[in-house]
């Protein structure tokens, strides 16, 4: 049996690579290259840094609510809109939450089996917005990178934007069905 077929496709192969290079991650248990600390203050600072890095690690798992907002604003200036990936027999459907973004500010690219969704959310600078009480929404550039599975038909990709949700559909190419051999009982 081909075990590879049973393993779920990792859509985030490429994206994980990216974040690995962007964020230095301190893994507990690993020996940190220690800077010589001459004063107790320096040591405290080092410990604080370690603590902070560990704290950030905890936010890698994203979900609803505040922690999502937190990571969005953190990854090197690019925020990551949340996305859903669904699959039926016929197609893959990817939906991305991009409220308040103009359709023309979104770019979709496929190259080397990698789909890149990127764009920019501009903050409207209007005279009428004088003072603010709260700014919770994220602004700036965003990006998501998806590795496409083999059976996704990259030439027939369709995208549609409605109510702040971008939906990308990729039809699935027919995968050769495994032959079923019937054995006659004699």
């Amino acid at each position: 049996m081909d075990l590879k077929k049973l393993a779920p496709w990792n859509w985030f192969k490429e994206e994980e690579k990216e974040t690995d290079t962007a964020l230095p991650i301190n893994r507990p248990g690993q020996i940190q290259p220690r800077r010589p600390s001459y004063s107790p203050v320096g040591q405290i600072q080092q410990e604080m840094e370690q603590l902070f890095n560990n704290f950030l690690k905890g936010f890698e798992q994203r979900g609803f609510g505040t922690e999502k907002f937190f990571t969005d604003s953190l990854t090197d200036g690019l925020f990551k809109p949340t996305l859903d990936i669904g699959a039926t027999e016929k197609e893959y459907a990817i939906s991305v939450e991009v409220p308040g973004i103009d359709q023309k500010d979104i770019t979709l690219e496929i190259s080397n089996n990698i789909l890149t969704i990127r764009g920019e959310k501009k903050q409207e600078h209007e005279e009428k917005q004088k003072d603010y009480y709260r700014i919770e929404r994220s602004y700036g550039s965003f990006q998501r990178i998806l590795s496409l599975p083999e059976d996704a038909d990259q030439d027939a990709v369709k995208a549609n934007f409605k109510n702040g949700i971008l939906t990308i559909t990729l039809p699935r190419n027919a995968v050769p069905q495994s032959k079923i051999k019937q054995i006659e009982i004699k």
């Binding site: 609803f64 004088k130 603010y132 702040g164």
Partner: peptide, 25 residues
């Protein structure tokens, strides 16, 4: 699940302006 949408709130002399992200609604 019920979640609070993220908002921006502005004020000027004439009005208060509120933006709330509610994608897909």
């Amino acid at each position: 699940p019920v979640i609070a949408p993220v908002v921006d709130i502005f004020e000027n002399d004439d009005e208060m302006l509120l933006y709330a992200d509610m994608p897909g609604v």
